[in-house]
Write a protein that binds this DNA or RNA. Structure first.
Length: 969
RNA sequence: GCGGGGGUGUCCGAGUCUGGUCAAAGGAGACAGGCUUAGGACCUGUUGCCGUAGGGCUGCGUGGGUUCAAACCCCACCCCCCGCACCA
């Protein structure tokens, strides 16, 4: 481990000194521009993050070896509120967070004090993350680094938003959000206790009336208004009579504040206990029927208005509550109600749903044996009834004009109609409540006024985005459908908030552009970032016209430069550098960003840039798991990257996060995987030292003359692995590539070593072959494990950095089907022999092989040839054999051959046909030493037609091509 | 619900696009043997069932179908995981 770390540090220093990852425009070379979503510096990076970044780096390194001028830059995303929130929690002495910072993130205690300043925290983690990226060996051009709160970057974002506004993609409106009434802030998942996402549902408030007094019943199923038998209120809870806008409403006390946050004017006139309402008669606005207000414990004053309509036929809660109350005569009397009259209330069925009775709620309740309205199983029953009714239910004749309509449709229609007629209103409520803000306050829903949006719902914009997507390469391709879906589904996205770090909206400075909106086209900024720094360009020099020129080629360069007080050459240089590196060739990120960032990126590029500068490829990958659980801050199972690097080293971590899973899947990381990678690399290193020791001076040609079949086989296999690995890398199937390069190639090499273990006099050939294999292997491993590969490269006395050496190309002249078929033949023969030995439990002294007679080969090859063309005629096959030779066995063999040939895959057939009959006897003779060593017996080979043949059990006759007969004694 | 991914041997996990060499790569675990003072280190072998000759049977979520041939193609169903936003 120690030695791995030394190697890593050594090469990182040398790369830096040689500046090999600094990419400047070079017209002689094709460019390749890769970016990866910049990190958010509110915590150190962990091994989970390392997967995405390592993949991007591997991609960059691979393309560099393929001869491209690769640019891989990096920046830091300071925008947003999480840093603020964390900083605040630290200031409030949040114990959990302090513990995380000290014990998990390893932040020195004295540093912690500074973190009450959010910017100091961001800077600290920025540095931390950057160090980690260097230590893991990413081939980043650091000259282009920036943060999203740099004034110059802000100017760029302002320019972008002006462009969006000019195109009409910015809109304004109202929008419900999760809200903490104490902090006065919107709350997202990371602001809540337990990191729960506040889910907002829209309730319909149906206005039941007593004279002019409104009982706004909150429901998610407005279509059931036709089956209401009574209303429910909670008798213990406090209700109010209040003026709401222009009406008088009866609502729970808790709902008053909520309605105010939803832009209603609420003036409380009277406060009382719920039981006072019991017995009130109200009118159903849809059916005009008169019904009574009844008490129910399950009616939650904290949910919406606290007034509920009762539909016992289709709502299990209502059904059970009604059944309960019917039996409680004493209680009813207490309220002054007539038990007999209440007992007569019957559920009104209004939805027909297959598989259920008139009263589906009763079915679901009885199935679960529920008797009390407080039974938690009611939740499940409600879901069941809802699911079936929503998808399969039809409205019954008693629903008037909705009769016959599917429930899914009627639900929306009834709601719209009631609202239009003034008989209903809406109210937002958290459907997964209670949701608590980190400050401890229960969250509510607020309608945010005059919110700014980017309108991703615009049809013509979607069309452009689809056009771009169609031309892009999506890796893995399986996720294209998901992108298509997201493009269609996106609509207005709130793009600014009132707190946090970032850029202010240029036309409305109260608002700060939020982080998913200021990170959509910044890849373009990388192309000019180094010039901005180098020439110390100030934000005021970066006028909209300057950006128009650089990115869009608009305007007169001299005028613009003069106006902005910029050097014309510098301006032109930026324009040229942008044009050189753009469009973006590949964008990397975790697949969780498909639903926002990645799709936003496509949208915004199509809005701002001309078609030829649209992004070309997106690569996404899954997460990293630790013992089957996603590695994530919220699960508390992270290994900070820098800690991991100390423990396992850079190359083993790079290898670990990329070798266990393909893009789409989640990768598993644990210390034992990392450990096995360390072992693997150490082995490679040791064998490299062995191989490097002996040098061959003979020419390749001279050596080739001495090749045995097995040498040719090894080199042929090498070509195959080069082809496989290259193909895999092209699709960023790094796992597959690693397997081919490291494991499968090693297996073949081991087999080769075994085969020639006792070969004499050809050490030079062996060394040559092994060296060839090693060189190719190390080259192909370089993108993934660059440090150890540089070291081995040096041991092999190669010139220059391996990081900038060319990726190996397969040599078609070394692909040797014959050698591979020969070897395949031997392996099968060995397997067959071993199988016989196993079954017979014999300890053989002698093993006899009888290879098939030439006439069998003739028939066999003819059959193969015919089978690739269509039907095989028995007659034709027999004619292959001269009349003299024909016997009963001829026909029998031909017949069997026809059957057997069917099961050979097409590709194999082609190969065998290409090389014709192989000399099986010679092949076995050549491998005799190996076979006998392996089988611990003497090997004797005959041709079945040999005159002098030892064949006591008459086995020879069953020999077929590629399958000699075997006799063991 | 909508959209996406997936269900393979004791376990993990390839193979599915391009049907046949698939009882199914590679690991892990287990067992046996070797090396060794010892080993959690390394090496060799075995690891669905049956079989004293290279074979047979069962088998890749479930049920059908196509085909000479299905883990792989088609249809239906069941189950698991992820996303559904204003938040990085």
């Amino acid at each position: 481990m120690e030695f791995l770390r030394k190697i890593e540090e050594k090469w990182q220093k040398r790369w830096e000194k040689a500046k090999i990852f600094e990419a400047d425009p070079d017209p002689r070379k094709p460019k390749y521009f890769i970016t990866v979503a910049y990190p958010y510096p509110n915590s150190p990076q962990h091994i989970g993050h390392a997967r995405t970044y390592t993949l991007a780096d591997v991609h960059a390194r691979y393309m560099r070896m393929r001869g491209y001028n690769v640019l891989l830059p990096m920046a830091f995303h300071y925008t947003g509120t999480p840093v603020l929130a964390m900083s605040k929690r630290l200031a409030e002495n949040d114990k959990d967070l302090i513990n995380d910072f000290i014990n998990v993130y390893k932040v020195p205690k004295e540093k912690l004090k500074e973190f009450t300043d959010p910017l100091a925290m961001a800077k600290y983690f920025h540095k931390e993350i950057k160090e980690g990226m260097k230590r893991i060996g990413y081939s980043i051009d650091w000259r282009r680094e920036f943060t999203t709160i740099d004034p110059n970057y802000s100017r760029f974002i302002e320019w972008q938003f002006e462009k969006l506004r000019q195109k009409g993609y910015i809109t304004r409106g109202s929008h419900p959000v999760g809200w903490c009434p104490k902090d006065g802030n919107p709350v997202g998942q990371h602001d809540t206790v337990g990191d729960v996402e506040p889910e907002i549902g829209e309730f319909t408030l149906i206005k039941f009336k007593k004279d002019t007094i409104v009982f706004p019943t909150a429901t998610l199923r407005p279509e059931t208004v036709f089956g209401v038998t009574n209303l429910w209120i909670n008798p213990q809870a406090t209700y109010v009579r209040a003026k709401v806008d222009n009406e008088e409403w009866i609502i729970s006390q808790e709902s008053v504040e909520k309605l105010r946050h939803q832009n209603r004017k609420v003036h409380v006139l009277e406060t009382f206990q719920g039981k006072k309402l019991v017995g009130t008669i109200v009118e159903n606005p849809a059916t005009k029927t008169k019904i009574m207000v009844l008490p129910a414990d399950f009616a939650d004053p904290k949910n919406a208005t606290g007034v509920v309509m009762s539909v016992p036929s289709h709502a299990p809660y209502d059904y059970v509550a009604l059944e309960n109350i019917k039996k409680e005569h004493a209680k009813l009397k207490e309220y002054g109600l007539n038990p007999e009259k209440i007992g007569q209330i019957q559920p009104i069925s209004l939805i027909a749903v297959p598989g259920y009775s008139e009263i589906p709620a009763a079915d679901a309740v009885k199935k679960r044996k529920i008797t009390e309205q407080t039974d938690p199983k009611l939740e499940d029953a409600t879901k069941e009834v809802y699911r079936h009714e929503f998808h399969n239910g039809k409205m019954k004749p008693n629903t008037g004009k909705y009769s016959g309509m599917p429930v899914a449709q009627a639900k929306e229609k009834v709601k719209q109609d009631l609202i239009a007629e003034g008989k209903a209103a809406t109210m937002y409520e958290l459907v997964n409540k209670p949701v608590k803000c980190r400050c401890g306050t229960e969250c509510i829903v607020k309608i945010f006024q005059d919110q700014w949006f980017i309108d991703y719902g615009k049809q013509e914009w979607k069309t452009l985005t689809h056009k771009c997507l169609d031309k892009m390469e999506i890796l893995p391709e399986e996720l294209r459908a998901e992108f298509e879906y997201v493009v269609d589904w996106l609509h207005e996205k709130a793009c600014a908030r009132k707190s946090g770090m970032g850029t202010r909206l240029p036309w409305d400075k109260e608002w700060i552009i939020e982080s998913l909106s200021d990170s959509t086209i910044y890849m373009a900024y990388y192309t000019i970032a180094r010039h901005l720094k180098e020439h110390k360009i100030k934000p005021e020099q970066l006028t909209d016209q300057v950006f128009d020129y650089i990115f869009l080629g608009k305007g007169n360069i001299n005028e613009i430069a003069e106006k902005a007080n910029l050097n014309v050459e510098v301006l032109e240089k930026m324009r040229q550098e942008f044009l050189y590196f753009y469009p973006l060739d590949s964008r990397h990120s975790g697949r969780d960003l498909i639903h926002n960032h990645l799709t936003f990126m496509i949208f915004n590029h199509t809005a701002i840039f001309p078609e030829k500068l649209w992004p070309r490829q997106i690569v996404t990958n899954g997460s990293v798991m630790m013992e089957g659980v996603k590695m994530s801050k919220s699960f508390g199972n992270i290994i900070p990257l820098r800690e991991g690097l100390e423990k396992f080293g850079a190359d083993p971590i790079r290898l670990s996060v990329l070798s266990t899973a393909e893009l789409l899947q989640d990768a598993e990381f644990n210390p034992s995987i990392a450990k096995s990678m360390i072992d693997k690399l150490e082995k490679l290193y040791k064998s490299a030292i062995q191989t490097a020791k002996i040098k061959t001076t003979e020419s390749k040609q001279k050596l080739a003359e001495q090749f045995d079949a097995i040498d040719k086989w090894m080199l042929s296999r090498l070509q195959k692995h080069i082809i496989d690995a290259t193909e895999a890398m092209e699709k960023m199937s790094v796992r597959k590539a690693i397997h081919s390069i490291l494991y499968e190639l090693d297996q073949d090499t081991q087999w080769y070593q075994k085969r020639i273990a006792n070969r004499k006099n050809k050490e030079n050939v062996k060394n040559y072959v092994l060296r060839r294999v090693l060189e190719a292997q190390v080259l192909m491993l370089t993108p993934v494990a660059p440090h150890i590969c540089e070291e081995i490269w040096k041991i092999l006395e190669k010139k220059g950095f391996i990081s900038t050496s060319p990726w190996p190309k397969p040599d078609p002249t070394e692909m040797d089907i014959k050698a591979e078929e020969n070897e395949e033949f031997l392996i099968n023969l060995l397997e067959d022999t071993e199988n016989i030995i196993k079954v017979t439990k014999a300890k053989p002294k002698k093993i006899f092989y009888y290879v098939a007679a030439p006439w069998k080969w003739k028939i066999y090859l003819k059959a193969l040839e015919k089978s690739t063309q269509g039907k095989i005629e028995l007659k034709e096959l027999i004619q292959e054999v001269s009349k003299k030779e024909r016997t009963k066995a001829t026909a029998k063999f031909a017949l069997k051959t026809i059957e057997q040939i069917k099961t050979i895959p097409e590709k194999r057939k082609q190969n065998v046909l290409k090389i014709g009959a192989i000399d099986e006897r010679e092949t076995i003779e050549n491998a005799k030493e190996f076979l006998s060593r392996r089988l611990k017996a003497e090997i004797i080979v005959y041709n079945e037609k040999d005159k002098e043949i030892y064949d006591p059990k008459r086995k020879a006759a069953i020999a077929t091509p590629l399958r000699p007969a075997i006799y063991i004694e």
